[in-house]
Amino acid sequence: MGLPHPGYAQSMKQKDSLKFNKKIVPDIIWREAYIALAHYPELKDTPIEFKFKKDIQKSFMQAQPKISGLFKNKKKRAYFVMISEEIVIEDEVFDVTAVPSDVLIGWLGHELGHIMDYRERSGLNMLWFGMKYFASKTYIQEAERVADTYAVNHGMGKYIIATKDFILNHAHLSDVYKARIKNLYLSQGEIMMLIDELE
């Protein structure tokens, strides 16, 4: 994947997007998206559009297949990574410009982990996945831990840890929200064990 010329990116308005290797990426996050994508060579030819959205419930990002291609050959599917313009957690407002670069890379890497999972599923299986995800907390936990595992196994462990640290050590976030993150995602200890297994 060739790195777009920095001068080109800097000359564009924030609302504009870069296009490279079947990827569409808002200019404001192109560096972080490029770093995250570089860890997933399997996704080189997979169309992915990173797109800002007004509001994503209870999340900062969300990966999903494009509905129009859901029942196409798995290798021909295209995906969105939806990114909330801002997220309110316990009265604390975050937007993409306030998130440290390593944390943003980790978040993007986690969502690409979801896409790695999705690309092995049939269209019917994806529909069943969606229904179970919204109906079962246990299934949410399983799906989020799978995405974390994909990210760590693709060399993104330090970024995933940075994302956890950002959330769990943020003084203004409630213990209830932090407990939810601890329950649904891999713990820092589990991430370190996975990293050790890769070495």
Rank of each mutant, 00 (worst) to 15 (best):
S68P: 06
K182T: 15
D45I: 05
K72F: 10
F129G: 00
W30L: 14
H154D: 02
E90C: 07
Q10A: 12
R180H: 15
L70S: 07
Y34N: 04
Y34A: 09
R145A: 03
P65A: 12
K15F: 11
E142Y: 13
L184I: 14
Q10E: 12
W30S: 11
K54Y: 07
K178N: 08
M193G: 02
A63I: 09
K137H: 07
H170R: 10
K158M: 04
S136V: 07
L184P: 04
A162L: 08
G189D: 14
M126S: 03
H170D: 14
V152P: 00
D16Y: 05
A162T: 06
F71I: 12
D16S: 12
Y133V: 03
S68M: 15
R180M: 15
L127I: 15
F60W: 08
F71R: 07
I35M: 12
F166P: 02
K53L: 10
L104Y: 01
H114N: 10
V25I: 15
Y79C: 04
M12T: 01
A147P: 02
D117E: 14
D91W: 00
K182L: 15
Y34D: 00
S17V: 08
E85V: 03
D102A: 09
D45M: 10
A78I: 05
I191N: 00
M193W: 03
D16H: 08
Q62F: 15
K53I: 10
A98N: 05
G69S: 13
A9I: 10
K44T: 12
V99T: 08
M12G: 01
D165Q: 13
R145C: 04
I195C: 04
I35P: 03
I56Q: 06
R180C: 10
D55Y: 13
H170V: 02
W128S: 07
K54S: 12
P41F: 08
F71D: 11
K54C: 08
R119P: 02
L127E: 05
K13R: 12
M116Q: 07
K75P: 02
G189L: 06
N183M: 12
D117L: 09
K13Q: 11
N183E: 15
P26S: 11
E92S: 10
I115W: 00
V99K: 05
L173E: 04
R145I: 03
